[in-house]
Nucleic acid binder design. Structure first.
Lengths: 249, 249
DNA sequence: TCGGCGTCTCCCGTTCAACGGGAATGCGGC
DNA sequence: GCCGCATTCCCGTTGAACGGGAGACGCCGA
């Protein structure tokens, strides 16, 4: 789990420190951070102190450390992620009222699908996806949409790597995937049955900005549920989102 | 506008670079960043390059620079801001359906109100608040709630500073504010008429986690609209949010 | 065609702040 | 008391950050 300190600029170290924070490890001691980020103890304490002084990290009364609001603020204001999310949110809510399941917004980031937003209906079941979480491109409907419209070199690079199966039915054969992706481009929709969990199906469509596919909008349905209503709701939402992206605000 | 390079660690410089990105300046050249962050040109280019390599910044085809998805990801996963927002979002949506205006979630950050979330009904008018935006504590209903329940030393520090008036009716007299804040603590609600814009009124209530006030939930109404429905809707939402925060997930 | 402007890259000698090993202190818990 | 862990302090070393400056490149208007 410990990162090998392959390179070592100040910035790499800061990133390694930030990477030690996850949903289940949101509060840690400076020493823990140091161990997980592969930093010598005294160095880790110094860097953590500096980050706390800058407001990027916060400190509890018991000296334990957590991500700071200021980091959140700096990362969001002026980010394209926020712009996209703001455009999408109202339409995602509308999807949510029709399809009472999970609705998600994902973008391509470092050869994976990064989830920007998730709305979950109270009645819907569990769902792996988390905001700021990732999934492999080949194993989620959102990922398939993003991969299908990605530059060819990226697509080939991903397909050349060994593809992990998240569930028994995950498609990991490059040839079959290539045919799947062609279908996604043709139909404008990706349907992934049991790719992540056997019991559920993902349905995803692309969102375009100035012609380019910039994100994927998806819903997760129970395995046996029909797809047509979902596809219609997603297409309608995309129309609205794309109109919002085009207009100044 | 240019920041004085008061201190100058690597981290300060990075923060200064990130600070140059705002909603209206989301894409800039490396030279622009350097000027705005008060960095020598060659230094600015080097730092920007490093940040791009680390994925914290992204680069367009035309070499202009924007905030990276990876920064967004690192800032959010494991952040308490996300946890709070996730707990609040469904209840904010419910408020939104009753009070068809703006609904906002804010926290205290560095003696200002930092807005974590905003939902806006299509029919509602313009609104200053932006996600990842700030407002002074004394001049918004959310700010008054946060200030009223803040530690006494912070409250006194804020009241001792010269208080800016955002609108003609903004209350800037420390004595009057102190009395206002006592009323907020007593009533459990803050009402700010024309503090930001003459035409609107803010109504805000506190959100508690383990007894501590951690955030404020607010709506912005047209000046003449009645407050009672808003207060009821906000109180109901807070109940739900606090229950969510208490339960594991 | 030319000149000017802004951006970016490259080079290189200087320097000083980051670095981290190690020892010491403090703090529970068994 | 004793151990394990987190944190703090000290200090001599060193190499990487620093930034001034020169020059290349591209764009635009004259």
């Amino acid at each position: 789990m410990a990162n090998s300190p392959s390179s070592d600029s100040m910035i790499d170290r800061i990133v390694r420190v930030l990477e030690t924070f996850t949903a289940d490890r949101s509060v840690q001691s400076a020493s823990q951070i140091g161990r997980r980020a592969a930093l010598p103890s005294s160095t880790a304490h110094r860097i953590v102190d500096e980050l706390v002084d800058a407001g990027l990290l916060g400190r509890d009364e018991d000296r334990r450390v957590h991500l700071g609001m200021r980091l959140w603020e700096l990362a969001l204001r002026g980010s394209t992620a926020l712009r996209l999310r703001q455009a999408a949110l109202p339409y995602m809510e509308r999807v949510q009222t029709h399809i009472r399941q999970h609705t998600q917004l994902a973008v391509l980031e470092q050869d994976e699908a990064l989830f920007l937003e998730r709305l979950s209906h109270p009645d819907a079941g569990a769902n792996i996806t988390r905001i700021a979480g990732r999934l492999p491109l080949h194993a989620s409907s959102s990922g398939l949409v993003l991969l299908a419209h990605a530059p060819a070199d990226l697509r080939e690079r991903v397909l050349a790597q060994p593809l992990r199966a998240l569930a028994p039915e995950t498609v990991t054969d490059p040839g079959r995937l290539r045919r799947l992706l062609a279908g996604v481009r043709r139909d404008g929709v990706a349907i992934a049955q049991g790719s992540i969990e056997s019991v559920s199906t993902g349905v995803a469509v692309p969102i375009r900005d100035a012609g380019e596919v910039v994100a994927a909008l998806s819903v997760v349905l129970p395995r046996q549920a029909p797809h047509t209503a979902a596809i219609i709701a997603l297409r309608e939402a995309v129309t609205g989102i794309e109109a919002t992206l085009r207009s100044p605000r």
